[in-house]
Design a protein around this nucleic acid. Structure first.
Length: 619
DNA sequence: CAAAGCAAA
DNA sequence: CGCGTTTGCTTTG
């Protein structure tokens, strides 16, 4: 037993080292001991030092937040604030929608179980999919009992479970099986939303109606079909919205399902004792931030509502209130747009300091990116170089162009240019990412041209976007925009499934129609009720914290490009400058881009007038 | 616009 | 022994 560190709170560091996917388990009896072993195995490494540094940073950040909390609470009219928040809650409650039956389906230890299918001798044995020298993508349930988990480095998993067997990955197989199960799910909801290759969301309201089935029987039947046709098991959660369904699918995993009563009180009490860490969107950092002010469970959110209101900028009051109430989006849609935001490639290697060797890696990455971009038909205007020092510190350097980039030579030379500016460095990872993309395949499907070219939809590529917005009025929840990616042709390398709770695409508040504007809500910064993302650095208290100004300051806000314009064909108005134009969608987009970047540049310039000197260490 | 950081699959 | 990859999004400068 290692003696407690002399320094300070070792607990948070030990927990951090355990990795991000420690959440549920329900398996390993003594997580503490496991965490100790992990910490022990990591000690002395550069990775460990880096985690230690991050942990210290976070601890300091928390100290700053707590200090500010003290200042704010000192001269605040708590009862009044609480009344205000209670109004917000009533408002949210008034919009609760229990009419839709949402299901989250999640394959059990997907990769591992597929491997077991192809190699029955693995049954009952502890094994992990991955290499001893890499990280596990999945661990069999047997292995999980020892604390081995996905995302864990092989050698640590081996330490926890000496008999652990390492099994190679077979993406082709997983993808194949994925197609099979998705096809089954689609029969229950043609609009289902696949969230990765082994899970998805369904709205089975209609199916149940048409087949006179209860939700539970329906899901039971669906799971049984999957098992029959693939010999794989799937767990499911049934609830009135995606967040709840996601949480529920984990409740009786593996090979089980959980049905949450569609009842307000049942839901709120379900949330009451639920750890905030189970909420999709709340990760390790946000968990610690919330815990620092006393919030461990969703029930605690209500207890500390006044504090949260006062510190909305850090914690995202709206999001947390909805979480506390168990309210979230219940909109399930197919994968509604190919609006990809970025495309990139990166690679880790044993630390290198030699220029030629590093440039070689960069070239490989550039080549890979070019190939990917070509394959999927993209070009971009901003290239970002990412590099990780041998100390595990990560940096990014970007450069924008006035033309579209996609060729390897451009990628490489730009990446080199950006990198040379940082020289000398010793790296363990290098990567390139293109943003501000242009869809090379979409140009002629868009806008008016589409009316003339009755060409076959045969292109092997992607679908076009399908915007639709009318349901904005519909009431209840509604996502502003569910993201979705797709073609997992060139699949990444890992997925991290399983038992990690993992996320789901988060729900999106959409302050528009819902709550928000109506009643007098105080304090409503442009803070989306999105997931939290309450990071931000400690900042001076800016005494402006008066949650009592019954006026939502909505106007002075930068027009979020995504929220406004839709498929325009004829004349449209630029949401930024108001100019009226006759152009198609891509024309408008180009103009909007221009407007936005013009504003951003101006802003950036203005701000850089008073330098801030804050660059840090590096080297 | 550029850079850092969080989260999720 | 040697702790991954891809994407999206928010915040800060």
């Amino acid at each position: 037993m290692p003696a407690p560190e002399a320094s300070q709170d070792t607990a948070s560091l030990v927990k951090r080292l355990a990795g991000p996917s420690v959440t549920k388990a329900g398996l390993a009896k003594d997580q503490t001991e496991i965490n100790q072993i992990i910490a022990e195995a990591s000690k002395g490494s550069k990775f460990y030092d880096n985690e230690k540094r991050k942990d210290k940073d976070l601890t300091e950040r928390i100290a700053g937040i707590l200090k500010q909390r003290g200042d704010l609470l000192r001269n605040a009219d708590i009862p009044k604030i609480e009344r205000t928040v209670d109004h917000m809650i009533a408002d949210l409650e008034a919009h609760r929608d229990l009419t839709q039956i949402i299901v989250h389906v999640d394959m059990d230890a997907f990769y591992a179980n597929v491997e077991m299918l192809d190699n029955p001798s693995l049954a009952g044995k502890p094994f992990g999919v991955g290499h001893l020298h890499g990280v596990l993508t999945t661990a069999s349930y047997e292995a999980r009992k020892y604390g081995a988990r996905s995302g864990m480095p092989g050698f640590i998993a081996k330490k926890l479970c000496p008999d652990l067997i390492f099994v190679d990955m077979h993406f082709k197989r997983y993808s194949e099986m994925s197609d099979v199960i998705m096809a089954i799910f689609k029969q229950y909801d043609p609009n289902m939303y696949p969230a990765g290759c082994d899970e998805g969301y369904l709205n089975i309201t209609k199916y149940c109606e048409e087949h006179s089935l209860s939700a539970e029987n329906c899901v039971q039947e669906m799971r049984e079909r999957v098992r029959r046709e693939t010999n794989l098991t799937v767990s499911a959660g049934i609830a009135p919205n995606k967040m709840l369904a996601k949480i529920c699918s984990d409740k009786n995993k593996p090979n089980g399902q959980f049905h949450l009563p569609f009842d307000r009180n049942a839901i709120v009490s379900f949330m009451h004792d639920l750890s905030i860490r189970k909420i999709p969107g709340i990760g390790r950092v946000n968990e610690r931030l919330l815990e620092s002010i006393g919030i461990k469970t969703c029930g605690d959110i209500y207890t500390y509502r006044a504090t949260l209101c006062l510190m909305d900028k850090y914690f995202g009051l709206q999001f947390l209130l909805r979480t506390h109430l168990g309210i979230a989006s219940n909109s399930v849609q197919p994968v509604q747009r190919e609006e990809r935001k970025s495309i990139g490639a990166e690679r880790t290697f044993s630390p290198l300091g030699d220029k030629e060797q590093i440039l070689k890696k960069l070239e490989e990455v550039a080549l890979e990116l070019e190939s990917d971009m070509q394959k999927s038909g993209w070009a971009g205007r901003t290239l970002t170089l990412k590099y990780k020092l041998d100390t595990y510190q990560v940096f990014t350097r970007a450069k924008s162009f006035d033309r579209w980039i996609s060729k390897k030579d451009d990628l490489f030379s730009t990446g080199k240019e950006l990198l040379m500016h940082e020289w000398p460095v010793k790296l363990r990872l290098i990567g390139l990412r293109m943003t501000k993309l242009k869809d090379l395949r979409a140009t002629e499907d868009k806008g008016i041209k589409r009316f003339f070219s009755a060409a076959g939809p045969s292109s092997p590529g992607k679908r076009q976007k399908i915007e639709r917005r009318e349901d904005l009025e519909s009431e209840g929840e509604l996502d502003a925009a569910d993201e979705a990616r797709e073609d997992y042709e060139s699949m990444p390398g890992y997925e991290e499934h399983e038992f990690e709770e993992a996320g789901l695409e988060i729900e999106i508040p959409d302050d528009l129609a819902t709550g928000a504007s109506s009643s007098g809500q105080a304090l409503r910064p442009a803070s989306h009720a999105k997931p939290p993302s309450f990071l931000s650095h400690t900042k001076p208290a800016s005494s402006s914290s008066k949650p009592v100004s019954t006026k939502p300051r909505s106007s002075a806000h930068k027009p979020r490009s995504a929220a406004a314009p839709k498929e325009g064909v004829r004349s449209c108005i630029c949401p930024i400058c108001g100019k009226i134009m006759d152009t198609d969608n891509s024309g408008l987009n180009a103009h909007v881009d221009f407007c936005l970047s013009r504003g951003a540049i101006l802003e950036a310039q203005v701000q850089s007038l008073n330098p801030q000197e804050r660059k840090g260490k590096k080297r």
